[in-house]
Amino acid sequence: MRLVALFSVLTLIALAIQTTAIRWLPLSALMPDLVLVLAVDLGLRHRRALAPIMAFAMGYAMDAFSGSQLGINTFAVTLTYLGAYEVGVHTSATGPEAGAVLAFVAVLVQNLGGFLISTQFGAPNQLGVLLPAALLQATVTAVVAPTVLQFTAAVQRTIGLTQQRRTRGWTTRGA
């Protein structure tokens, strides 16, 4: 339950920042995608069946504030969780640097894939126009990701939410 409570609060904070602070920025692409960073955090650190359900709910919540089509962010955030989970299970890269790389890739996939899906693959020639903004947002997200991941790790330690490491299925709980 602590996992659900913590990530619900963090998602609401991230959405509040993303939907209000964006108006102060000269370019919308300068706003990092904090919800995707939270999904990366969830994938790298939490290996229970509740975690992908939480990622799904986070994406659904993001859909309430983005785009006209339900499902794009739900799909992207769940996919990001699964990607981070697999990286965490099969490699030892679970630190903030790995999180930054995963967040970078996740933002690119979300922007470009989301555009293709929402246009029903009808305007692939506009991908080139979208790419600079997508790259900029991915870079900004990757830059802030380590700080966000360190912050969430500290919060999780404080409330006693243990991280689950390594092997798939039979989890071991670490500090």
């Binding site: 290996r47 069946a49 799909f75 769940t78 798939r168």
Partner: peptide, 18 residues
């Protein structure tokens, strides 16, 4: 494989939304 299976099912549900 409960985590990837749960994730895959949820991916299918979100794909259905789409």
């Amino acid at each position: 494989n409960r985590v990837p299976i749960t994730g895959a099912v949820l991916l299918l549900i979100s794909a259905h939304f789409l």
